[in-house]
Design a binder for these strands. Structure first.
Ligand SMILES: [Zn+2]
Length: 320
DNA sequence: AACCTTTGACCATTG
DNA sequence: GCAATGGTCAAAGGT
């Protein structure tokens, strides 16, 4: 009579939604469908173009086009990927288990239900205007985003990994493999992610790109991408030796979540964005304006949970 | 005071 | 149906 309901009700929107014939999944889930606010931010972006963000630049896109033969505009990203795979550069990493213990049967097949991007972040998310949220909700828009991301990556001259997940969960997952440490690790990751395709661009990647997240703000802030995040969980996944942290955009109306994997040193090994922000970045300018508090990290022990009949945001996600 | 992190337990999905 | 895994919740505690 107290908490059970709360727990039950919760939000049972986990992964999986492409299989309409899911047994215990009465909720109708949609692939890409977010509650779009009355007005489109797209306009805002196109119209004003925030000072902080670079906005939309057709430049990179074009570049991308060059990279991916067959990608016209915003077609299905699958196509794009296909094109990429067709590239001679594409090389599936067969070696697995450099990490050690991750005996994942994994499906090596490349299924294109949900695109997944992985790129060694020579450039931190900051560089990207908004990898996870441009305010575009349509699949087309999403494609665009991907392209942008790719473009950015390409522009950065960093090796980029295009990975495809077999069957992701909800909307989309943008994965950035931040690997300032070295390529070796990145390779490792690629291998670890058995079920994904890895596309490597042979480019001289100046390692000087790595930001100061090596030791300073590594643990402090989870990759500033211009948005505020609240950590709501941490787990140790088998595939990775490092714990994975789960973050949620602080905006209650924003469904965006992100999973960040950090090594003990604080190096971000993997960042997975899910969904897209339906709002502009809270802090376009980061001058001496410290509206928030200190960007210090908090650390304390957790507690026990008792009961709470409240379910904050459970209508968003990917289609209420 | 508001907000965020920590953390164990709960839950959902998959094999 | 159970076990394993991953994802989320929410109390407690810090900043
Ligand atoms: Zn957001």
């Amino acid at each position: 009579m107290y908490n059970q309901m709360a727990k039950n009700e919760k939000e049972q929107q986990q992964p999986k939604q492409q299989q309409p014939s899911s047994p215990s999944k009465p909720v109708s889930s949609r692939p890409i469908n977010i509650t779009l606010p009355p007005r489109s931010f797209t306009e805002t972006f196109l119209s004003s173009g925030p000072p902080g963000t670079s906005g939309f630049s057709p430049g990179p896109m074009t570049l991308l086009s060059g990279f991916f033969p067959g990608s016209d505009d915003c077609k299905s990203f699958s196509q794009l990927l296909s094109g990429t795979m067709a590239s001679p550069n594409f090389k599936p990493t067969d070696d697995k288990s450099p990490a050690g213990d991750f005996s994942r049967p994994g499906k090596l097949s490349m299924v294109p239900p949900s695109p997944m991007f992985t790129m060694p972040l020579g450039l931190s998310p900051v560089a990207l205007p908004d990898s996870s949220g441009f305010g575009l909700f349509s699949p087309e828009g999403f494609g665009m985003i991907h392209q942008q991301v790719l473009a950015q990556a390409a522009q950065a001259n960093s090796n980029m990994h295009v990975q495809q997940a077999p069957a992701m969960s909800s909307t989309q997952f943008l994965t950035f493999i931040n690997n300032p440490a070295a390529h070796q690790q990145q390779q490792m990751v690629g291998s670890v992610t058995d079920s994904r395709v890895t596309v490597q661009e042979p480019s001289d990647f100046p390692r000087s790109y790595k930001r100061s997240e090596s030791s300073s703000l590594a643990v402090d802030k989870p990759t500033d991408d211009g948005y505020n995040w609240r950590k709501y969980g941490q787990k140790q996944v088998k595939g990775s030796e490092f714990p994975r942290s789960y973050y949620k955009c602080t905006l209650p109306i924003c469904p965006v979540k992100k999973k960040v994997e950090r090594s003990l040193d604080g190096q971000v090994t993997e960042i997975i964005y899910k969904g897209q922000h339906n709002h502009e970045p809270p802090r376009p300018d980061k001058r001496g304006n410290d509206t928030g508090r200190d960007k210090r990290q908090f650390k304390q022990s957790g507690g026990l949970r008792n009961s709470h009949p409240i379910s904050k945001w459970k209508c968003q996600e990917n289609g209420r």
